[in-house]
Nucleic acid binder design. Structure first.
Lengths: 245, 245
DNA sequence: CGGAGCGTTGAGCAACGTCAAAAGACGTGG
DNA sequence: CCACGTCTTTTGACGTTGCTCAACGCTCCG
């Protein structure tokens, strides 16, 4: 099964930070693929994990809840080519839960496989470390976004990030993305109420820059969307984008 | 100078995640101490860095600004015993600036020193990786805080984090902390206007849980402060606190 | 003495949250 | 097939939070 899995994996998106040789080293170590349905919990806050996951298809989210409350806040999205839970390799226990937002397929790699390959290939270890720190950079951006931007800019910025990361993962910009989440999910990501998200979506639609409906995100005017969201890609550390700072 | 520097360094705070042996390995590699004044920029967004820093005294902050704007948002605080810019080791260029919020002393370690020691000591490398991921966990918490909590809870949560991390770095809980920042700095950390911060500070004072004045944070009622801020320490991954999840 | 930066307070307003209601989408069981 | 419940979206009315603008006092420092 391992070789079969390896053959089906493509080094898309952020995996572009690995050299071909590094990918050839890493890919065979994934020992299976697992599918999840929208809403499935992939790993629960506090669980001890002995494996990490690579997003192959679909969208996976990290979710943090304050102690008492039932509802929490999405703090990151992972698109195809992103590791999720690679944090779990050094941390062992995660402070957040991981859920599938859409139908999602992930590849599983055991921590002892990772351990072995990283002992031998220090450069690969460093790239993996790098990838977890890009996540940290994105977290910083989310903190900034939800602190500094008003509702409309917030949602526009969120959509711009999604557009940029997904188009990169898919190899080209799309006019339409499947983003099978509810408006309530969006509200948990952007730190606002579902009702207000609904109104902001209407405003964005009437502004003619994008439409979100039935889990479809349609980009009508990308540059306008980015301008409204004050969006800049530098913090994403996209492969081949070394000049952005 | 190196050995002199090493002798003056103590493995306080989060450095408790290193074993004694690991600290003995790492400490001699810091080649100098540098002092900063409040407001000094320690490293600028986009600079290529060939060294990383360890906070020895004072408080250092990470700052993110959206593309067009002049004012930005603080996205993290580092207290004594925290690495700052260790992210720069894998990332090379940082998406954010680092500034001294107070008088601060940092120890400098060259990336090639780090590289060499990590090549030899894979366990140490992993602890350093771990420490950067604790930063990521804290970023997630900041994103959650500024998304889910109302103004008073936000500030209370912020103060609770500061109290917890500083008391850990200092070895015991204090009644008074020096936090030589302006209300405007607080507003940049909590995603609100300085005016509103001012009012919230008054409310917290009148509530009898804490006083912030002239850069002094006085904790009157720690448990009340934490309750108002819905604060829980798990996300900080404090050494010796493995049971929290 | 004058200016600059910070803290404090008030008045008014815009943004956003809360509550409530209703309609559409969807699956389930009868 | 229909009836029903549940979830989501949408809209309206209303209340509150938090922002804007403005003024003034304070302290520090030249």
């Amino acid at each position: 099964m391992a070789s079969d899995t390896a053959q089906r994996l493509k080094p898309t998106g952020m995996l572009g930070h690995l050299s071909d040789a590094q990918w050839q080293t890493l890919a065979p170590l994934f020992d299976r693929l697992v599918d999840y349905k929208p809403g499935d919990t992939i790993s629960e806050r506090g669980e001890a994990l002995h494996y990490s996951l690579l997003t192959v298809e679909g969208i996976v989210a990290r979710h943090v809840a304050p102690p008492g409350t039932s509802r929490g806040s999405f703090v990151a999205l992972q698109v195809p080519g992103d590791f999720v839970d690679l944090h779990a390799f050094p941390l062992k226990r995660l402070d957040h839960s991981v859920v599938a937002l859409t139908h999602a397929r992930v590849a599983v790699i055991q921590h002892d496989s990772l351990q072995k390959v990283m002992d031998k290939d220090i450069e690969l270890a460093r790239v993996l470390w790098f990838l977890t720190l890009v996540d940290a950079s994105i977290h910083r951006h989310w903190a900034m976004r939800n602190s500094m931007l008003r509702a409309m800019a917030r949602v526009a910025n969120f959509f711009s990030e999604f557009d940029t990361r997904m188009s990169f993962a898919l190899g080209q910009e799309q006019e339409l993305y499947r983003l099978e989440v509810t408006q309530t999910d969006l509200s948990d990501a952007c730190g606002m109420t579902p009702i207000h998200v609904n109104r902001v979506l209407r405003d964005l639609r009437e502004d003619g820059c994008c439409t979100f409906r039935n889990g479809d995100l349609i980009i009508h005017d990308r540059s306008r969307l980015r301008r409204i969201g004050q969006f800049d890609t530098a913090y994403l550390y996209l492969p081949g984008d070394e000049t952005t700072f």
